[in-house]
């Protein structure tokens, strides 16, 4: 989408499909699979997975696409929320933080193309999926509610246990997906602009065998 990174067809497909997946994780069938727990759990889990699976830029694009659709009036956020109203409420900072958080997760977890390790995935998910998201969410919330940083920070601690559980699940799912379908992590046809007309097959560029 920028001159620096040009997304090809395989990238566009992954971005769109993952945006759709995050949306679906906020819908009834997914919520049921999580034992009817607070819907927000499954959806922010999807945000974390966007970073670990798609990597920083495609992952961030997927979250941005989801948020643009929400802004356009589609109820794609957890529990059927959506519309312009979501973007003027106290939680808007968390939505911005999702994008920044995915980039941080992707940069840490996918720093090289090797197998994601427990340690690095955990660090990435906690720093990106919790610390970064809160770092954007809390200041906006403090500003909009006028309560100041301290009290807002305290109130956000209520959500910390849930977010930690989510982070643990995200790490487990990332490693499980690596075993089940390593191709999901493949870099697709990111290529320099100069040769934008050439094609790299999806099959060709995705890792065919997981490296131990």
């Amino acid at each position: 989408m920028t001159t620096r990174t040009s997304f090809g067809g395989a990238d566009l497909a992954r971005i769109a499909v993952f945006a759709a997946l995050i949306a679906v994780l906020g819908m009834p069938p997914a919520i049921a699979a999580f034992g009817g727990a607070v819907p927000i759990t499954a959806q922010t889990l999807g945000v974390m997975l966007a970073g670990t699976i798609l990597g920083p830029w495609r992952g961030a694009a997927a979250v941005l696409v989801l948020e643009l659709l929400a802004f356009a009036g589609l109820p794609v956020l957890a529990g059927g929320r959506g519309g312009a109203g979501v973007f003027v409420g106290p939680s808007v900072g968390y939505l911005i933080g999702w994008i920044a958080g995915v980039i941080v997760i992707g940069l840490i977890v996918r720093a090289d193309r090797r197998r994601p390790t427990i340690l690095r995935t955990s660090i990435g998910v906690v720093l990106g999926g919790i610390v970064t998201i809160y770092a954007f969410g809390i200041p906006f919330q403090a500003g909009i509610t006028g309560l100041g940083f301290g009290p807002t920070f305290l109130s956000s601690l209520l959500f910390l246990p849930g977010d930690l559980i989510k982070a643990v699940i995200a790490v487990a799912l990332t490693l499980a997906l690596w075993r089940a379908y390593p191709r999901a992590f493949g870099q697709t046809s990111r290529r320099p602009q100069a040769s934008s007309d050439t094609v790299t097959s999806v099959n060709e560029s995705a890792p065919t065998t997981p490296q131990a």
Binding site: A10, A13, L21, F34, L49, Y181, V202
Partner: peptide, 29 residues
């Protein structure tokens, strides 16, 4: 549960993404 549900969902989804990407290119993106 999260694992028995999300892992298959992710596998289906990413497989589908590969097919869709191919179709996007084939259709002249």
């Amino acid at each position: 549960g999260p694992r028995t549900f999300v892992v298959p969902l992710l596998v289906h989804t990413m497989r589908f993404a590969d097919e869709l990407g191919e179709a996007l290119v084939a259709r002249g993106l």
